[in-house]
Design a protein around this nucleic acid. Structure first.
Lengths: 119, 119
DNA sequence: ATTACATATGAATATATGCTCATATATTCA
DNA sequence: TGAATATATGAGCATATATTCATATGTAAT
């Protein structure tokens, strides 16, 4: 039987299926970005921060106090959330206030909650 | 100034905010589960598998061929997706067909796409 | 039974990542 | 200018994780 030409150790059982699905797959880069986005959601500290910010904007210190974690740990995580464009910030004197940057955050949360709830 | 009583190295600047948000936070366990769920979405191989299965059910070999990866790697990832209740399977002779197990998957995907697209 | 094939899985390795610690930067106030 | 405070960040460490390799399991056909 003929081996396929990809870097895979399997025979293709259903070539038609593979070919058809292959055509519908989004660009590699898009899927990578998507995984990177969900990776940001995939940490309980960041989830907690996002969850808190859904209620209202908060400063770094207060988030740290809320979660019982160090300012440094929170600041590191906020940087990741910032890079993912999930939070934005505004400075007011020495204090930096963070808030959600995107309406999709709530939607993604809602779907996630729905999944972990119904079982 | 008074230090807070949590394991945090910050002063609480806005005690009212922290107290109020604290009351709205879901249970620790729920947030942990939520992070665990998103962690599953946070890998490009698993994202690709889920994306493919959105089109139709597929067997392990064909997924491996589609993604150009080994059967073993795909099988390991399918186990993780199975444990997260994101995919289900049916056996037909030697072949095991996987498909999406949950309508939330598509919704979570859609929101994720929306986020990574609009920029 | 034996062979072939599709899939599953345990161990090992390489890489990624979250937190800590120390320190830097930014802003305010005296 | 100097001290105090809020935040940011680089390095290091401990842990988690994705893939590979070898092998086990399950099913069908001869």
């Amino acid at each position: 039987m003929k081996r396929n030409d990809t870097a895979c150790d399997c025979n293709i059982i259903h070539r038609d299926v593979v070919d058809r699905v292959s055509k519908t797959m989004p660009r590699e880069e898009t899927l990578y970005d998507l995984a990177e986005l969900f990776k940001v959601f995939g940490d309980s500290t960041r989830i907690k921060i996002l969850c808190a910010l859904q209620q209202q904007e908060m400063c770094v210190c207060d988030i740290a106090a809320l979660l019982g974690m160090t300012q440094s740990a929170i600041s590191h995580q906020l940087r990741i959330l910032k890079q993912a464009r999930l939070v934005k910030y505004r400075r007011e004197g020495k204090v930096v206030y963070y808030s959600l940057d995107d309406e999709h955050v709530s939607n993604i949360f809602a779907q996630g909650f729905a999944h972990v709830s119904h079982r």
